[in-house]
Amino acid sequence: MVFTKLFDSERRVIEAAERLATTLGSDPNHTVAAAAMDTAGRIHEAVNVYHFTGGPCAELVVLGAAAAAGAGPLVTIAAAGDQGRGLIPPCGRCRQALLDLHPDVTVAVPTDDGPALRPIRNLLPDTYFHPDADARRIVRFNKRYYEDIAAGRKTSTVRHDDPIALGSAIFLFEDDAVHRTLNGTVTGIERHRLDRLTTEQARLDGFTSLDEFKKGLQDHYPGLPSDAEVDLVTFTIEASDAVR
């Protein structure tokens, strides 16, 4: 999945990496800059440390810098090269580390049409998963759903090709100017064919009819076939985050 239309927050991450890259001089030990945003909207920056023993890439250094700042799970990451090289994709080692430590991060990559954001899992398909990584998960929502989720009016979502894990997660409302998040728990995941969903399931997701529900999904996932498999995800939020 390629996100060709970027959120303002995603553009800020890319711009931060590119801006830092322009400050790198002729030192051959520091040639790539990286920036990463956490769920609070903070941007962390770092540069690579080249060394013949295998010094870390900028993406790995920025993971450490973010952890030192108590960032928690990261939302978006980008890297840029010095001497005007612009946005660059992560190497294989960085992809594996990102997938294990921040499995829901999106990564900025260059394309013929400009920067695009891709889920890290799409950059490393059929990969090994480090079983002890114990990463905090993120579930992304459109920012317009914040009030309904906080008030308990919306307790489910339907996703396509968007792996979500059972258990606790940070609910992130994308491109929200005040970076609001909720702490929640994914309680159930059921796979259905799109053409076999029911009106009751549509209403659980806040739609008034099945046709409206299917149209909303196909607008969100352009080209989604009528017989596609989708996941019906149910969730709760922590009582302390609920709006009464």
Rank of each mutant, 00 (worst) to 15 (best):
A239W: 06
G55D: 03
L197D: 03
Y221C: 07
P103G: 12
T208N: 15
T106W: 10
A16Q: 04
G86M: 09
F171N: 01
H130N: 15
R12F: 00
R42Y: 09
T236K: 07
L224T: 03
C57M: 11
E45L: 15
R85M: 12
H44W: 14
G206E: 01
Y146S: 11
R93T: 14
L60G: 08
A40R: 15
D175P: 09
A35M: 09
G223K: 10
A151I: 01
F171L: 14
L117Q: 11
D176C: 11
P73I: 02
L74Y: 06
K214P: 00
D38W: 06
V158F: 07
V62R: 08
E200Y: 08
E15G: 07
N183S: 12
R180Q: 11
L98V: 08
I120E: 04
G25M: 01
E238S: 10
V107H: 04
F207K: 04
E212L: 13
E190Q: 12
P28A: 10
C57I: 05
L101A: 13
A177I: 10
D113K: 13
R153G: 10
I43D: 00
G25T: 06
P222L: 05
D113R: 11
D132G: 13
L98Y: 02
A35V: 04
D104A: 11
A16Y: 02
E212T: 06
A34N: 03
F171W: 02
R159C: 05
D148A: 15
A242W: 00
D126M: 06
A36L: 11
A21F: 09
S9T: 12
L6A: 08
A108G: 09
R137I: 02
D148H: 11
I77P: 08
R196Q: 13
D126H: 14
A21S: 10
Q201Y: 00
T106Y: 12
G86I: 02
L123A: 02
C57V: 05
P163V: 06
G188K: 13
D231K: 06
T199K: 05
H179C: 13
G41V: 11
D38Y: 10
I237H: 12
F7L: 13
I138N: 00
D8T: 12
A169C: 03
P103Y: 07
S9N: 05
R136G: 03
V243G: 09
A150N: 02
L124P: 00
E229V: 14
A40Y: 04
D241T: 01
A46W: 02
C91I: 08
